[in-house]
Design a protein around this nucleic acid. Sequence first.
DNA 1: ACATTAACGAAACGGAACGTGCCGTAATGT
DNA 2: ACATTACGGCACGTTCCGTTTCGTTAATGT
Lengths: 201, 201
Amino acid sequence: MARSTGEALGRPTDVELTRRILDATIELLAEHGYPGLRIEHVAKLAGCGKNAVYRRFADKAELAAEALRSHGEIGEMPDHGNVADDLLEHVLQNQANQVRASNGETPVGNNGWRVAFEPEVFPIIWERFFTHRRDQGIELILRGAARGELPADVDADLILDTFAGLTLFRQSIKGVSITPEQYRAMIAAVLASPPRRGDPI
Amino acid sequence: MARSTGEALGRPTDVELTRRILDATIELLAEHGYPGLRIEHVAKLAGCGKNAVYRRFADKAELAAEALRSHGEIGEMPDHGNVADDLLEHVLQNQANQVRASNGETPVGNNGWRVAFEPEVFPIIWERFFTHRRDQGIELILRGAARGELPADVDADLILDTFAGLTLFRQSIKGVSITPEQYRAMIAAVLASPPRRGDPI
DNA sequence: ACATTAACGAAACGGAACGTGCCGTAATGT
DNA sequence: ACATTACGGCACGTTCCGTTTCGTTAATGT
């Protein structure tokens, strides 16, 4: 039936409750990790029933992915005029998203962001969040190549995967933070001898 | 009661069955991943009851960790006389262990090794396996420093974490393989401008 | 030969957690 | 007033973990 207004019938979904559910998910994720995340605890902390959670999110993986996405920031596209500073800002934004996902309390040793790499969750969060960040990373590297800072056939994916992996392994798995200077040193090294696509095997 | 021989009483534990259990675990891990690993399926595939599994391993995490460890190889300590070749062999051994854990069938896109980074499993496998590999990595870098190839205060941990993270992210999470040439390019870059411990912040 | 000890397969069990369904109630639009 | 939908609370079926029990089997000692 065609409806006169765009409004849905009946009692509207409580958007503030949605917010509380996502906040509760992030908090419990940071505390107990993904395997220890209990939907009933989320509902309890958000002050609602499991019912309200499952009406919004299909399952636990969907809930976790949306919670991460809603607490992450795509961030501004860096533009310092050189690849080194742009890339540093890019990886620091990634790191900041991880820290934010661990509830802002524990800057290191968090298990909040690790959920993003669970087999069930990664495909979802990759498609809805990481791809945007990745596109930014690709762009800032190719922009540097266009400026002549890097060879035209620079292997941008390899560079970005290197720093994504480093941050994941150190921050979320080992629970040890990376200093900006450590990032800077690795970035300087990689940009000084950039890997190229199609390097002969 | 003191016993005359060192032999245990009663029916001895079937060591071949232990082998079959670990093999079955690796196979099912590669196929279904850690969350999808069912102890009952392991028992079925190994041709025994759950009983026999739990007599050997305390829980699912312990089983998975031991399965990975038993299928991984510490490997020979590389010694090519230069850090670049030693480090390349080191990271290729890590990659080979990942491929082996994915049942040797799917060289890429495996989820067999990803289990090593599950919150429950990582502390166990780190202590019993990764530390040995890590010690080898530290040693070959420090050996290079002693030869004057690298500064004495080179940040060996940062270098090893970089390649550990890269392999993890690409191989186990994205499911895309890394060519030896890509490793070589990254190693060359890092060794050309090596990060140092205590770089000023 | 016989007893002792412990591993074995099969099966039943309790507990935890996921995800669903039902109820009565609250909120909104017609 | 009525239809429609979200809400909290609760009970339910299902799955899987890890434990326990039972009868059987294999090795050892006397």
